[in-house]
């Protein structure tokens, strides 16, 4: 298997032999303009390729920067969601659960005769505790925010 560099070398050698043969057959008066055109074309192609490569690199850098900015924004939003989610789990879920438990246990108590009162009292106290905890946390948050603003 011939590698790419060897192919280039063979091609260049073949081209050189061809032009040498043409130079011998037709003379240098014909060969000089042909070589000039080929050389100019090669230089022009190299310059154009360089320009395209630079533009492509800039676009890739811009894309990468935009992607990083987008990722940061996404992470900030996700972080906000996590905080809100944690707050809801910590405060609202216990309240909702206790309220549900209280309503259901009262419903069961009304249907059955001589049911114990303590389960109702338990859910009632749980509801009050959950509400009190949220109230304390909310008050703390409001006070600290107020102090931070002032």
């Amino acid at each position: 298997m011939v590698d790419r560099q060897t192919k280039w070398l063979i091609g260049a050698a073949g081209l050189a032999v061809t032009f040498a043969g043409l130079g011998l057959l037709l003379g240098s008066q014909f060969l000089t303009p042909v070589l000039t055109v080929i050389f100019s074309g090669a230089v022009l192609a190299a310059v154009v390729a360089g320009i395209f490569q630079t533009l492509s690199d800039r676009a890739a850098t811009k894309r990468a920067t935009m992607q990083i900015d987008l990722q940061k924004k996404l992470e900030a939003i996700q972080s906000m969601w996590k905080i809100a989610d944690q707050q809801m789990r910590e405060h609202y879920f216990p309240i909702a659960t206790a309220a549900r438990g209280l309503s259901q246990i009262i419903h069961l108590w009304k249907k059955a005769t001589a049911s114990p009162i303590l389960p109702i009292f338990y859910w009632f106290v749980r509801l009050r505790i959950a509400t009190t905890v949220m109230l304390k946390k909310t008050t703390f948050f409001i006070l600290t925010s107020y102090l931070a603003d002032s």
């Binding site: 309240i95 909702a96 659960t97 309220a99 549900r100 309503s103 009262i106 009304k110």
Partner: peptide
């Protein structure tokens, strides 16, 4: 009972 259910 109704208030607790509504609250939930």
């Amino acid at each position: 009972e109704k208030e607790a259910e509504y609250f939930h």
